[in-house]
């Protein structure tokens, strides 16, 4: 069943009773919340995602609750819970949907050690994937959103999941987080992109989410990473791309991994295999259009 098979009233009621679960790639998230922004966000940004009602098993049981106390009246807040435990501090209620997105990422990064989880955007052409690891501000999410709008398959804008057994990457199709100016940049780059409401004044500035392009909600088959590009957005810079050695690439990937040390030797062997199979580049750019063309050229080679 898809979210859009349910009316917003049904979604709201099922969420309030904690009976609805959202499928994203290999994970099923059972979500409980009575906050209207959550049902609105799900029906809008996850309309074509698979949902299940009362599934026998879910990977993560999460909830979003309004915080109690006097604050409830004059400064409403929202808490995220996994297994009835709050891993982080509450946020203003207006950021409830963004908190669900961050919370789901947190669950995967902290509890899915059966994958090597890298902080990176990941897109693919067929079964050949392009990995975009980058610190916040490097422009990886914007670039990811742009590539997806040009027909690349969306794997994730935040979390690259490697299966240690096969060294393949697995898609976790989720709405793409856009921050501050990126929101306008993508609206301009792809007027057809479906972008949700903007949450202002979050810890990351203004945040909005772009829906997964239609037809990609299931994630599709795994892929192998063929290109590893470290993006570096610099205002007004000329587009420039240079190769990075496998050893250097591996060191940088380790820095971007959430759970490299948890996997120990398995993680080392896995990343060693990944950098051997892929080409590494560093790409400085100031224009989205130019870098998108460059990535297309890489894939066409």
């Amino acid at each position: 069943m898809l979210t859009s098979d349910l009316s917003i009233g049904q979604v709201t009621a099922l969420l309030a009773e904690g009976r609805l679960a959202l499928r994203t790639g290999p994970f099923l998230f059972r979500i409980r919340s009575s906050i209207p922004a959550i049902s609105r966000g799900l029906t809008r940004l996850y309309a074509r995602h698979t949902v299940e009602v009362d599934p026998p098993f879910s990977d993560f049981h999460v909830s979003l609750e309004r915080s109690g106390g006097v604050r409830y009246l004059f400064r409403p807040q929202v808490r995220f819970l996994l297994d009835e435990w709050t891993p982080f501090k509450p946020l203003p209620l207006t950021q409830a949907f963004a908190m669900l997105e961050w919370g789901m990422n947190w669950c995967i990064a902290n509890h899915a050690h059966h994958y090597l989880v890298l902080h990176a955007a990941l897109v693919a052409k067929g079964d050949r994937a392009l990995l975009l690891p980058g610190a916040p501000g490097s422009g990886k999410s914007t670039l990811c959103a742009a590539l997806v709008q040009r027909g690349w398959r969306l794997f994730s804008d935040e979390l690259a999941l490697f299966d240690p057994a096969t060294a393949e990457v697995v898609a976790v199709p989720r709405a793409v987080g856009l921050k501050n100016r990126s929101i306008e940049v993508i609206r301009h780059f792809a007027p057809a992109a479906r972008i949700g409401p903007v949450a202002r004044d979050t810890a990351k500035g203004s945040v909005a989410h772009m829906a997964v392009p239609e037809g990609q909600e299931e994630g599709g088959a795994p892929a192998r990473v063929r290109w590893i590009v470290f993006p570096a957005f610099t205002e007004g810079a000329e587009e420039q791309i240079e190769p990075v050695t496998p050893a250097r690439t591996m060191l940088e990937l380790i820095e971007h991994a959430f759970n490299y040390s948890v996997l120990g030797e398995r993680g080392f062997n896995l990343l060693g295999r990944v950098v051997q199979e892929a080409e590494g580049f560093r790409c400085t750019y100031g224009e989205l259009e130019q870098v998108v063309e460059r990535m297309e050229a890489l894939a066409a080679k």
């Binding site: 990977d59 509890h111 899915a112 050690h113 059966h114 948890v262």
Partner: peptide, 11 residues
Amino acid sequence: HLRSARYLAER
């Protein structure tokens, strides 16, 4: 989930 927890404990 069990494998994930086992890796964490081993680490």
